[in-house]
């Protein structure tokens, strides 16, 4: 695979079009929810992401991740993959996944992602070779982490 094809794997290009989790959804009454707005001042990419849970503990289930935003295909695909993967996991599991994703993105292409755990997220391993694009991939994942903290405050 050429560098460009490692960066833009088909899974990423597909998710950039499917945009799972878009648009931003109103949480159901009684469900704790948290929100975060992230902005990359270098390129202007931005995302507003909401996490809806069925409770406030680490064992609580993520009911839904939804978002609105605009940006490059890497940032939009990362938000889509995250939204698809997060639904149905617990709060604790999602926080662990976010840590694993971040570790992979910081690896400069050396990480061997656990596809069983990271699912479509593993396709972003190639992005970690392009330091200028790591922030694109991380934008929504950082938003999810902050939204979970925000939900805990609610």
């Amino acid at each position: 695979m050429s560098g460009l094809e490692q960066l833009y794997q088909q899974i990423i290009l597909d998710h950039a079009k499917r945009r799972v989790g878009e648009p931003l959804a109103e949480p159901e009454a009684g469900h704790p929810a948290g929100e975060s707005h992230q902005h990359n001042p270098i390129c202007g990419d931005e995302i507003r992401l909401r996490v809806e849970l069925d409770g406030t503990t680490d064992a609580s289930t993520i009911e839904r991740v939804s978002w609105e935003g605009n940006g490059c295909s890497i940032s939009m695909a990362a938000a889509s993959v995250l939204s698809e993967m997060a639904a149905g996991t617990t709060r604790g599991e999602l926080l662990e996944l976010i840590d694993e994703f971040r570790e992979m993105m910081r690896s400069r292409g050396t990480a061997e992602p656990d596809e069983e755990r990271l699912g479509d997220g593993a396709a972003f391993a190639g992005v970690s070779k392009f330091p200028a694009r790591v922030k694109c991939a991380m934008l929504s994942w950082v938003a999810a982490e902050n939204a979970l903290l925000d939900a805990a405050k609610a």
Partner: peptide, 9 residues
């Protein structure tokens, strides 16, 4: 196509 993707291509 977002400009960042254009530039990368």
């Amino acid at each position: 196509v977002h400009p960042h993707d254009v530039g990368q291509f």
